[in-house]
Simulated assay, not measured.
Amino acid sequence: MSDNQPLQALFGGTFDPVHYGHLRPAETLAKRVGLQKITLMPNNVPPHRPQPEASAAQRIAMLKLAIADNPLFDIDLREMQRDTPSYTIDTLTELRAERGVKQPLAFIIGQDSLLTLHTWHRWQELLRLCHLLVCKRPGYDHKLESIDMQRWLEQHQVDTAATLHQEAAGRIFMADTPLVAVSASEIRHRRHQGESCEDLLPSAVLTFIDNEGLYRNPTPRGILRR
Rank of each mutant, 00 (worst) to 15 (best):
I187V: 01
L40M: 07
H131L: 13
V182Q: 00
L40N: 01
Y20M: 04
E53I: 01
Y140P: 03
L105Q: 03
M1C: 05
N70P: 04
G213W: 06
L40W: 03
Q51V: 04
Q155F: 10
G139F: 13
M174L: 15
L126R: 03
S196Q: 11
A30M: 13
L29N: 00
P17S: 10
R82E: 12
A61E: 12
A204S: 15
I147T: 15
D3I: 10
Y140G: 03
L10K: 00
E27N: 09
L117F: 05
G12P: 01
Q8V: 12
R82V: 09
R99C: 03
A162V: 07
L153N: 14
A175N: 09
Q103C: 14
D199W: 06
D176I: 04
E79R: 01
L129C: 04
V134H: 02
I147E: 15
L105Y: 01
A26N: 03
P202Y: 09
G100E: 04
L132I: 08
Y140V: 07
Q193V: 02
D159W: 13
P178C: 03
I67H: 00
I172M: 12
R190V: 01
L114C: 09
F208D: 01
T119V: 05
C135D: 00
E98Q: 05
V33I: 11
P104A: 10
L92N: 05
L95I: 15
E27L: 08
R24G: 03
Q193F: 00
I172G: 14
S113E: 10
F11E: 08
S86R: 00
I60E: 14
L200T: 08
I89N: 12
A57W: 04
C135I: 03
K31Q: 14
L10E: 02
L200H: 03
S146C: 14
E167A: 11
P71A: 09
H189W: 09
R24T: 06
P47I: 02
V182G: 00
P104C: 12
K31G: 07
K136I: 04
V33P: 06
L65S: 00
G139L: 09
I209W: 02
I109S: 03
D176E: 15
N217A: 08
R191A: 06
P47V: 02
G213P: 05
H156R: 15
Q58L: 02
A168L: 08
P202Q: 10
K31R: 11
R24C: 04
M1D: 02
V33G: 07
T163L: 13
W152Y: 15
R171D: 05
N217T: 06
R82A: 12
H165N: 13
L114I: 05
M41N: 04
K102A: 12
P50K: 02
H156P: 07
P178N: 01
R190M: 00
L77S: 05
E145Q: 11
M149G: 08
Y140S: 07
M1E: 07
P218A: 06
T207R: 07
S86G: 06
L40E: 05
P104L: 10
P6A: 12
T93L: 10
R225W: 09
W152P: 08
T93E: 11
M41W: 08
L35D: 02
L95C: 12
L127V: 02
R221F: 07
P46C: 05
D16Y: 01
F11P: 01
D141K: 08
M62D: 11
A61S: 14
W120S: 11
L105H: 01
